[in-house]
Structure formats: C-alpha cells, structure tokens
C-alpha cells in the first residue's frame, strides 16, 4: 500500500512534477537567503569599518604616506613598501619612555582601579544594605556616562592651583603639602591614573557584584557558622568563586586600557613635559591624525597602530578560546525548509 504511493510520487506527469519542484525550490531559495538579508547591513558595516581598515592599516604601516605626498605616493604598490617605519619606531629616542609609560599606565590603573577598586566596591556594596549598595554602584557608573570633555574638565578643576583648585584648597592646603601649584603639572601621572581608573572601575564593579550576588547564600552562612570572620569568608569563599569573572575583567581591561587614549589626550595630551605621559596608542594618534610638529604621517602612525592591532587580534582570539564563548551558543530550534 505505502510502496504504491511512493512509486506514484516518483512517476506522476513530468510537467506537474516540474511545476511543483520549481515552486518548492523557489521558496527554499528564499528560506536559504533570508538569514543573509538579516545579516547584510551588519556585514556591510563590518566590512567597511573593520575588514577594509584592517587591510589598509597594515599596508599603510609599510609606506611613507604623509601629508606632503598624499595623492602622489602610490602607497598600494608593493614597490613602495618597506620596514622603515618599524625601524624608526624602535630607534626612536623616546621609544623606551613611551613603552615604559604605557606599561606603567596599564599596570597601575588596572591594579588600583579597574580590578582593585572594582573588587572593593563590589565586595562592600554586596555586604551592606541593598539600597545603599546600589546607590554606590550607580554613583560609580556616573564617570562612564559623563561626556568625556565635561569629565576631564571636572578633574582639571579638582587639580587646579590654589585658590581655585579643590584638592589644593581642601586637602593639600590644610595639610601643608605642596605649594598650591597646578597638580597636573606637578604630578600628572597620579591624575592620568585617577581619571582613567574612575571610568574603568565600573566595568569590573558590575561584573564582580553580579558574580558575588550569584553565589548561593548558604556558602557564606556556613562559613560564618564555622566561625570565620568576614575577611576570612571573603578570602576563602567569595574570591575563589569569582575566579573567572576576575580573569575576564583583568584580561579584557588590559586590552581596553592599552588602546585607550581619549582621556589622556584631553587631560595632558602627553605632557606636560616632553612625552611625559605619552602612551603608545596616543603616539599613533598624534603621528597620524593630529598635525603634531606640523606633520601628519599616516604611514608612520599606522606602524605604531599595527602593533596594537596585532595585540588586539591575538587577545580577542584568546578570549574566545579561554572563556569558551562558543559553547554558550545554542543551536536554533527551527529548521530551514
């Protein structure tokens, strides 16, 4: 009985089979293309602003393209490529200072704020009254959402010379420290780290506090019953349980600090002394996109940027592997027909 039906299916008139097949394959084609129509806008944007720039930045870094030969130098021709820019970077008189600055800036900001302060806020705000804790966390989100120019302006006011400057006026003055000078001139590094740290702390704060809140209450209760102090509970129960968020925040924020320079540019612009607070990412920007010394050097600037691009790609791929993002992806539960 069933066999017969199947053979009929295979053997009916060619025309109707053809028509049916045609119709089906059309709707199947539509179904097959639908996902790509959804993806098309993102693909265009990503191609235009990630893929193409990625290729260009590498090529540019091998050329001597600058404002004087723009339109003349055929930078896309391999004949015009060389490693000169990279040699120039490493033989630069200020290279050791810029590298040192970058490492100090990343390490200190990360340790004191993006991880340290973040952890402190998360630990305190999860162990006090919920509403107060929440208010503190909201307060620490403010630096991140304040327009960066306004934010830097506030810090300049805080650092200002006496009698205008707030820190000089209310803290250093009464304590008799310093002579009331503009603090950005006397200790720029402190402010570079504070300015970036106050923004950076919120990222870790949010991840840490949600991770801490996700720890079942029984653990800390049990630990307290066992006679542990709050500090011991935190040390032996809480911290080991937020190991992964901790690792994630540390690595993610390292990369983000390494490549951020907007705040430093607005605050000190690498000064006040020669290259005193200039970091790697800022150097790339200065070389290529501001007329520093009246000269815009796209090729040389790109070489500085390429180093960061390569670090960025490597670290991004490492996240993907270490944090196993891929495994969180569930298979769609509707088939394509």
């Amino acid at each position: 009985m069933k066999r017969k039906k199947q053979s009929e299916e295979g053997g009916i008139s060619p025309l109707s089979t053809f028509l049916k097949a045609k119709k089906w394959s059309f709707s199947r084609l539509q179904g097959r293309l639908a996902p790509y129509t959804f993806l098309a806008p993102a693909l265009i944007v990503i191609t235009l602003f990630f893929f193409i720039p990625l290729v260009i930045v590498f090529i540019l870094s091998f050329t001597k393209l600058d404002i004087t030969n723009f339109g003349i130098l055929e930078w896309w021709r391999p004949a015009n490529w060389s490693l000169d820019n990279y040699v120039k970077i490493f033989t630069n008189r200020f290279f050791p200072r810029i590298l040192g600055n970058t490492l100090v800036y990343v390490a200190l900001t990360l340790a004191f704020f993006n991880v340290g302060m973040a952890l402190l806020i998360a630990l305190i705000t999860t162990h006090i009254n919920r509403r107060v804790g929440f208010a503190f966390r909201a307060l620490w989100l403010l630096p991140r959402i304040t327009p960066v120019v306004v934010y830097i302006m506030m810090w300049k006011a805080l650092a200002g010379p006496a009698p205008m400057g707030i820190i000089n006026n209310y803290l250093l003055g009464p304590l008799g420290i310093g002579s009331g000078e503009y603090l950005l001139n006397t200790s720029p590094w402190v402010f570079v780290i504070l300015v970036n740290g106050f923004i950076g702390a919120s990222f870790g704060m949010i991840l840490f506090s949600s991770a801490i809140e996700a720890i079942p209450k029984e653990y800390s209760t049990a630990s307290k019953v066992d006679g542990a102090t709050t500090w011991q509970t935190i040390r032996y129960i809480v911290l080991p349980m937020i190991k992964w968020p901790f690792l994630f925040v540390t690595t993610y924020q390292t990369l983000s600090l390494l490549t951020s320079f907007e705040q430093i540019m607005l605050l000190t612009d690498g000064g006040p002394g020669l290259y005193q607070t200039e970091v790697w990412a800022l150097t790339a920007y200065h070389r290529a996109l501001t007329s520093y010394f009246g000269n815009i050097q796209w090729g040389y600037g790109s070489a500085w940027a390429v180093v960061l691009v390569v670090i960025g790609i490597i670290m991004a791929i490492i996240y993907l592997r270490v944090f196993k993002f891929g495994e969180l992806v569930q298979e769609p539960k509707i088939d394509r027909l």
Binding site: P35, L39, F49, A305, L308, A316, L320, F325, V329
Partner: peptide
Amino acid sequence: MKFTGRKSFLSLTLILHAFPSVTLLIPIY
C-alpha cells in the same frame, strides 16, 4: 536562524566585541 557560516559569524562578532576598534581610526579616515 540556521545558515551556513553561522558559527564563524558568531565568533567574528565575539572577536570584534573584544577587539579595540579605536586602533583602526587611521585607516577609517
């Protein structure tokens, strides 16, 4: 949705998510 290249596209989004796009300002110019 199921489609060919879904996994790669997802990984790409994740890589871009972590990648510091600010380093590409020069070529974007």
